[in-house]
Design a protein around this nucleic acid. Structure first.
Lengths: 205, 205
DNA sequence: AATATCATGTAACATGTTACATGATTGG
DNA sequence: CCAATCATGTAACATGTTACATGATATT
């Protein structure tokens, strides 16, 4: 699957659940797929235009005039299955948090701790979001056929978030053992004695 | 931090550990930061040129002539700390595996199971890689000052990989309970045509 | 009547990847 | 000498984001 097709996959997939407008599409993608997927405005409309040109979706004047609801066609459903069957596009990782921690000596332990605490808080928030999504999906039950699959994605997010929290706690503990190490001397200064504002930390045994 | 600066951060960071050529830089980034970061060739050289122009790094004719080793300057170290202190760039998620599973009904349980098994295998492989990296970092010990921080990134990868494995096992079990559900009718059949926004459900008997 | 939201789009920009071109050095 | 690898770069392409322009519809 070429990369461009990924947007088409998401759009076709969403329309396979329910016909909607481009605007609603973006809202739904943000709200429902947001945990693991994102599309920007500038991609959705071109994708819709292209899909319509290929007759994989069709536009229906919803009731009177303006707002056009897009619905998937049989050919579109076939194409969706084809796209979903294509190998998963490997993602090039770019984790800004870990990049900063890797060069953590330049930042010093205090700043690193802050970064980790922030990440932990984010994971907690994520967990709360997912709990809400899980409840909604299980109760509302408008799409019982899909909800089993949707649960898989929610569960994936929960596992990842819990792992992040566990890692953060472990890391905060580990960081206290390097606390006494000062960051290396500033670029323009010769090495001065370590004058970190941190009180002496406990050595690890 | 603008996005472009992220490459500069990685390059400056790597050179802060050890001066090296652009080629070696790419190899090191791939080998050492590979678990959480990536840079493509086409970005490294322009970044090096720009950093040299700003005198944040300097080029040294290594021994005789050709291969130029880049070394960070004091100003470069200062800039690195500035970059590392900037807020982490939020990443827009794009998880192709979860996208496929979310629309799993179109694929059917068997294909989904395969996807999950593949993901599990990948996580296992990742875990093995990280174990090797951990061993190397702990024994080799060429950079004792940094190794504590490096361990944090390895640990993050391990937590994530273990979470992925646990999720996969759980999901494979869950999927067996939806096993009997057939994927919805093929694209050419009338049920999936938009005339009926919700294709009739084939409930399990 | 004024404001907020829905709705569709485009253009400019930013970012990132791939393939290619070029040549030096090294090891067999 | 030949092949592999090291080394530096560029250009074309692919992808993705942001800001803007426009106007309808609904709400207050």
């Amino acid at each position: 699957m070429s990369r461009a097709d990924q947007t088409q996959t998401a759009v076709l997939g969403a329309l396979s659940v329910l016909p909607m407008t481009g605007y609603a599409l973006r809202e739904e993608i943000r709200a429902v797929l947001g945990h693991f997927w994102s599309e920007s405005f500038g991609q959705i409309y071109p994708a819709l235009a292209e899909l319509e040109r290929q007759q994989l979706i069709e536009r229906r004047g919803a009731d009177g005039s303006r707002s056009s609801v897009f619905a998937i066609t049989p050919a579109g459903t076939a194409r969706l299955r084809e796209l979903l069957s294509a190998p998963v596009q490997p993602v090039r990782p770019r984790n800004g948090l870990l990049l900063r921690l890797f060069f953590g000596r330049q930042l010093g332990p205090e700043a690193c701790r802050t970064l980790i605490k922030d990440a932990r808080a984010q994971a907690e928030a994520q967990l709360a979001d997912l709990a809400a999504a899980r409840a909604e999906s299980q109760e509302g039950g408008e799409h019982p056929q899909d909800s089993g699959y949707w649960m898989l994605t929610i569960s994936a997010g929960e596992h990842a978030a819990r792992a992040a929290i566990a890692w953060a706690d472990e890391s905060l503990a580990a960081l206290s053992t390097v606390e006494q190490q000062a960051p290396p001397s500033a670029g323009s200064l010769p090495e001065s004695h370590p004058d970190t504002p941190h009180p002496p930390a406990k050595e690890h045994p």
